[in-house]
Amino acid sequence: MRWSGQELGVEQVDTLPGLARLNNLVRSVQTPDFAGVTFHEVLAKSALNKVPGQSAMPFGWTINPYRGCSHACVYCFARPTHTYLDLDAGDDFDRQIIVKVNVADVLRTELAKPAWRHEPVALGTNTDPYQRAEGRYSLMPGIIDALTTSGTPFSILTKGTLLRRDLPQLADAATRVPVDLAMSIAVYDHDLQQSVEPGTPSTKARLATVAAVRDAGLDCAIFLMPILPYLTDTRAHLDEALRQAKAAGATSVLYTALHLRGGVKPWFMQWLEREHPELVPKYRSMYYGTNAYAPKAYRRWLGERIRPLIRAHGLERGREDPVTGGVRSAAPPTRLPTRLPDALGLPPDPSALF
């Protein structure tokens, strides 16, 4: 798509169906550096997303500078969010990336409002803020600065090694506000990792990033999430994963079993049928019908297997909160009144990302 002729406030007749309805689309960009990927640059109306009050998440707000993710993890629970724009949860999620180019400026405005109470904010709970697109758009330095300057504690969960670029800024931020960092590293078999997470940095590269975080004087947890039944749940794999995590300097490890919500399950099962057809009957039995969670008996078995290993490697983290994508902030989590989104001028529905 040509960059010219994409005016704000009008329907974009030559773009994808869902995006055509947006009146905040600036332009759609393709570049040889990102073969097969299209970036749709939009002007965000809000940066902060309110977590529903009934949620078990240990934070009240999130920020998602991108929508869609070129990491292309076949198990990613955020895939269904792309259907809001009439994009599919499969290839489109991996290749049609929404970029909120003004997110840092919008965030500064929201954080400056008197109603803002400096509740912990989490990044990386939906799509990865350090996916490859961040190398092009550099949105995170502005976001980190806005949060730090406003005195807002924050946490970052990522698979992206580009986190290393911002370590000096994050180390400075940690002297002014509570900052929690975590690296998501679920698979320690190279071939399997490249198959199930084809767009991510290698496990080795992510472990090196954990070491770099520690060298910068910051703690870094590892999210061993998700654990894949019959693929990464053997005692040998878990023990080796924890050994490598400890060697990299990880301060703790959190885990949870694979979660397959609607919209993710078909995409994951296509991959499983192609790569591990012998496991399809077992997965259909575990994740039957609309069931998104591994059976309680399996989760109990997994806990009994991995918890002693976590203790043995010295990677416990007090009271665990193994929620996929959730990072516990060093600041005490508090809940805001339900009317606060209106006071901040924000949409009450966290799915209203634009």
Rank of each mutant, 00 (worst) to 15 (best):
L22A: 01
S195K: 10
A205N: 15
A35H: 06
Q244N: 12
G303S: 11
D172Q: 14
C220P: 00
A44R: 02
T31H: 05
E273V: 13
D189P: 01
V42Y: 03
R67N: 05
L163H: 03
P65G: 09
S46E: 05
V280Y: 09
G68K: 08
L340K: 05
R328L: 13
T203C: 06
F93D: 07
A171K: 11
V280H: 07
T125E: 14
K246N: 03
T127S: 15
R214E: 05
P17T: 02
F59G: 06
R311Y: 10
R2A: 15
L25S: 05
V74D: 00
Y298F: 15
H313T: 06
P332C: 08
P308W: 08
M183F: 10
K45F: 01
A35F: 04
P129E: 15
V323E: 07
N64E: 02
I156N: 08
P65V: 10
R2S: 15
E7D: 09
A104S: 02
M57C: 12
V323H: 13
V121N: 04
V26S: 11
G5S: 11
A47W: 05
R261F: 06
P341G: 03
A115Q: 08
I98V: 14
E7M: 08
E240H: 00
T251N: 03
A211M: 01
P178C: 11
R27D: 09
V51R: 07
L279P: 12
H71C: 05
S195W: 00
W301H: 10
A236R: 14
P281G: 02
I310C: 09
A245L: 01
D86M: 14
L22M: 12
Y66N: 07
T290G: 14
A297W: 02
G68Q: 10
H82E: 08
P114G: 04
V210A: 00
F93I: 02
R206H: 10
H259V: 12
D105Y: 01
V13T: 10
M1T: 15
P141M: 02
L111E: 06
S138F: 09
K246L: 05
L22I: 11
G289F: 03
S285E: 14
Y188H: 13
T251V: 07
F154S: 07
G314W: 10
K113S: 07
P168F: 10
L123W: 12
I310R: 01
G303Y: 12
R243D: 08
P308R: 08
L167A: 10
I63T: 05
A44T: 04
E11K: 13
Q54H: 11
